[in-house]
């Protein structure tokens, strides 16, 4: 692992597999009487959130606390940022307080990269969503959830449906899933597929019914109205008809196909309530897996000495004389 996690593209197949395998062990912690590990005792993790979030922030907070790190939550709304403080000054403040990791969510694409590249802080930077760019830990938890149900993702078909244009989840998933060997198809109205999507390692389609019948997993994306300042589709009803997952479409899915949604859901828009609550929906499981995956990421980035980018994990057995 590198020092930072900024993009799903930073992860090689081995790195990604290591995170998922580590998360598998972290997940068993939830079944134990004491849900705490001492690995990050004395480390400080700052949640720096310039944008509203419930599940991601809580998930990172739970992950850091279960690893015994100290957690400082920093929401831009109630801070000096509302008085005009810059990202740089905020970062310098956090550095002065001794942050070992900064989990950052920002409304501008590239904010996490800026924080990491500028070296304002010595800590690790974890991108928890930057604008419409990337959200790598969401992609990791989606891949983790799919892998638990489908096994190895190589050759599996994943269809990502909806507002791809504004979705950092879609971009990170497309990158990570193809790294893991899955075939990704993006489906959405032409206005909501990003410019330059032809250069992505994915297929695209405008026909949801045709795409889902051969899918092993279908990921529905939230229609991000707050990022839409233009008319991308004629009406909510038409969108829902053509690109929403309802009971009729769910009937077309193969028996084993999973339904995912990164949340928060617009029930009745991209996904109907009966689909969201159905047996093949793993949406609630995604949330609990999120904690395990973020524990794995924080553990792998933070434990051990700060190693230069590139070198990584000592996976070699040391059992020969380790006692």
């Amino acid at each position: 692992m590198r020092r930072h996690l900024l993009s799903a593209a930073d992860l090689s197949r081995d790195d990604a597999t290591l995170v998922l395998d580590t998360a598998e062990e972290m997940r068993t912690l939830a079944d134990r009487p004491i849900k705490k590990l001492p690995a990050l005792r004395g480390r400080t993790v700052v949640n720096l959130f310039f944008e509203d979030s419930t599940r991601t922030r809580i998930s990172f907070e739970a992950a850091a606390k279960r690893l015994s790190a100290d957690v400082i939550n920093f929401a831009a709304g109630g801070s000096s940022v509302s008085k005009g403080e810059s990202l740089k000054d905020t970062a310098l403040t956090l550095q002065a307080m001794g942050a070992d990791a900064i989990v950052v969510r920002h409304h501008s694409s590239g904010a996490a990269h800026r924080l990491a590249a500028a070296e304002w802080t010595r800590g690790s930077i974890v991108n928890a969503g930057d604008g419409t760019h990337e959200h790598p830990t969401q992609a990791l938890l989606d891949a983790f959830t799919m892998r638990r149900h489908l096994g190895d993702l190589a050759g599996r078909r994943v269809t990502i449906v909806g507002d791809v244009l504004h979705s950092r989840v879609a971009r990170s998933n497309a990158l990570l899933l193809t790294t893991l060997g899955a075939e990704v198809t993006l489906v959405g109205p032409p206005t909501l597929l990003p410019f330059g999507v032809a250069g992505w390692p994915v297929e695209t389609s405008y026909d949801l019914d045709a795409a889902i019948v051969k899918s092993d997993a279908v990921m529905m994306l939230r229609v991000q109205r707050e990022r839409m300042n233009a008319a991308f589709f004629p009406s909510a009803r038409e969108y829902s008809r053509r690109y929403g997952l309802d009971a009729r479409r769910m009937g077309l899915l193969p028996e084993h196909t999973l339904v995912l949604h990164p949340g928060p859901m617009n029930r009745g828009m991209e996904i109907s309530a009966d689909v969201a609550d159905s047996a093949r929906s793993v949406i609630v499981e995604q949330v609990s897996n999120g904690v395990a995956v973020r524990m794995a990421v924080l553990y792998l980035l933070l434990s051990g000495v700060t190693v230069p980018a590139g070198i990584s994990i000592d996976a070699s057995s040391e059992a020969g004389g380790a006692a």
């Binding site: 692992m1 290591l18 395998d21 580590t22 062990e25 972290m26 068993t28 590990l37 001492p38 690995a39 553990y299 792998l300 980035l301 933070l302 434990s303 051990g304 000495v305 190693v307 070198i311 990584s312 994990i313 000592d314 996976a315």
Partner: peptide
């Protein structure tokens, strides 16, 4: 029983892969 997360040399060495408990 994997004790990796409880080792006293976690901070001194690169992160280790976890074993199965």
């Amino acid at each position: 029983l994997d004790a990796t997360m409880y080792r006293d040399d976690l901070r001194l060495r690169p992160a280790r892969a976890l074993e199965h408990t």
